[in-house]
Structures are given as structure tokens and as C-alpha cells.
């Protein structure tokens, strides 16, 4: 109502981009994740927190198609992801989806130059003109604050923070709509973390990305995520608005999690 008077176009549309329903994965008889359901809308950032072994990484792997769930459904932009042919799903992960690994070494090719790492993803979707590819790669290195004169260096010559930023550039260069992130700031110095958080926030806002971010760092989700899911023993024990879950947690486990954070 107020927004109309102010002439502001509401961001974010009424159709979910990604829908998950009853997702369940067992490892033998052991539960990986159990009956997880949620909707993610364009431009929304969903945080998933929980201790090691809570099932958050299993869930992310199932969502991104790295693991096949036993039950449930995953719908992306109206398409049934689990029913897709493998080639179609792979195409999706190269184009409209992106996956940022905790360890940049898992998401980068360490023997290829920084420019090559970014350009490669463009070539995988059909870019062929060398000049265009190099220009786009340079532009993206700039956006993640890597100096243009480092374009021919290999990532092995980069610091951990730079490698992580390079991985983000490699992932975002193809203009994905949905980004999965597994502890993207894990293992980085706090000063480098802050820089990365600022970068991610800006990219989410400017590109309208939908993001699913798994982390154990509550400070990271507070600053980055709109909504939060708390997992324990493979189940979602609580979900809601990020600051509400952190400031007024309802479930015993969420209360324990929040009260266990050391104050600086």
C-alpha cells in the first residue's frame, strides 16, 4: 500500500523460485535429513545452521543435486529437478545454479590461471570469443576485488580470501539465479570474512540472487540471511525470520545454540 504511493516497485515476485517438499535422505538406517520442506523466492537468502552432523551439509548436497534423496521433491522454476535427465541437471548447475564450496580448492582448478578459472565457466556455456571472455573475466575479477594484473596468476599463488573471492567470481560469471554456499566464510580470518560478507551482500542485492547458505556461524547468517532454518539430528527444529530465531528462539536446541555463542 504505502509502497505504491511512494512509487516503489516491489522487489521479489510472488512465485517461489525453488520449492522443497518432504526431502529425506538416509545413509543405510541412519538419518541424513528428514522431511525438510521450504520455499525460496527470488532475491531471498535462506540460512541453514546447526552443529556438525545435524544434516545441513547432507541437505545442501541433496538440494544441489550432488546426492540423490530417498524421498521428497525439489522444484526449480516450475521444473521437477529430481525427475530431470542427468544432462539437463548438469546444464542447470553450469548455468542458472552455482555452488560455492567451503574450500576454494574444491571449486577452483588450481592449475589454471585466475582468468582461466572464470573464463572456463563461460566457455562451458558456449562463449567462444577470446577477447570477450577475457574482458568479462577481468570485469568479474574487479567485482570481487582482485587486481587485473593478477589475471594470469594461478590460484595457488593467492591467499585464502582471494581464492574464495575467485571461486565466487567463477560461480557468478554465468549469471546464476540460485546459489548454494557451504560455509563460504569458514577458515578465513575475521577481517577477510567481513570483506567477503560485504561483497556477498552487495551481489545478492544488485543481482537479485536467491541463496541457500549453510554455516555454523550465527553472526554470518544474521548479516546475510533473511530467513533461518535450525537443524538438529537431520530435522528442521525451527525456522523463521533470521533475527526472530536468533533473538527469540523457541526450540530448546535453538536456545542452546544461541546462548552458546561466545561474546566478543
Amino acid at each position: 500500500m504505502g509502497a505504491v504511493e511512494l512509487g516503489i516497485c516491489a522487489k521479489g515476485n510472488e512465485q517461489p523460485l525453488f520449492q522443497v517438499d518432504g526431502l529425506t535422505k538416509y545413509y543405510g538406517t541412519r538419518v541424513g535429513c528428514l522431511d525438510v520442506s521450504f520455499d525460496l523466492f527470488p532475491g531471498e537468502v535462506l540460512g541453514i545452521v546447526g552443529e556438525s552432523g545435524s544434516g545441513k551439509s547432507t541437505l545442501l548436497s541433496c538440494l544441489a543435486g550432488h546426492l540423490r534423496p530417498d524421498l521428497g521433491s525439489v522444484t526449480y522454476d516450475g521444473r521437477d529437478v529430481l525427475g530431470m535427465a542427468e544432462t539437463e541437471r548438469r546444464r542447470l548447475s553450469r548455468t542458472e545454479w552455482a555452488y560455492v564450496h567451503q574450500n576454494p580448492r574444491d571449486g577452483l582448478r588450481m592449475g589454471v590461471s585466475a582468468g582461466g578459472n572464470v573464463g572456463e565457466r563461460l566457455m562451458a556455456i558456449g562463449a567462444r570469443h577470446y577477447g570477450t571472455i577475457r574482458d568479462t573475466a577481468t570485469d568479474w575479477l574487479g567485482r570481487v576485488e582482485i587486481a587485473a594484473d593478477r589475471i594470469d596468476d594461478r590460484p595457488s599463488a593467492f591467499s585464502g580470501g582471494m581464492q574464495q573471492r575467485l571461486q565466487i567470481a567463477r560461480n557468478l560469471v554465468t549469471g546464476p539465479r540460485l546459489v548454494f554456499m557451504d560455509e563460504p566464510t569458514g577458515g578465513l580470518d575475521v577481517s577477510v570474512q567481513a570483506r567477503l560478507l560485504d561483497l556477498l551482500r552487495g551481489l545478492v542485492r544488485d543481482l537479485g540472487l536467491s541463496v541457500i547458505i549453510v554455516t555454523h556461524d550465527l553472526a554470518v547468517v544474521r548479516l546475510l540471511a533473511d530467513r533461518l532454518m535450525v537443524m538438529k539430528g537431520g530435522r528442521v527444529v525451527e525456522q523463521g525470520l533470521t533475527d526472530q530465531v536468533l533473538d527469540d528462539p523457541q526450540h530448546a536446541y535453538s536456545q542452546l545454540l544461541v546462548s552458546s555463542v561466545l561474546q566478543v
Binding site: I8, A10, D226, R227, G240
Partner: peptide, 10 residues
Amino acid sequence: PRQIIRLRRE
């Protein structure tokens, strides 16, 4: 949550 996010934004 989605409705509250929008309320807070606008």
C-alpha cells in the same frame, strides 16, 4: 517471515 521482510523494507 516473507511478509514481515516486505513490511520492514517498505
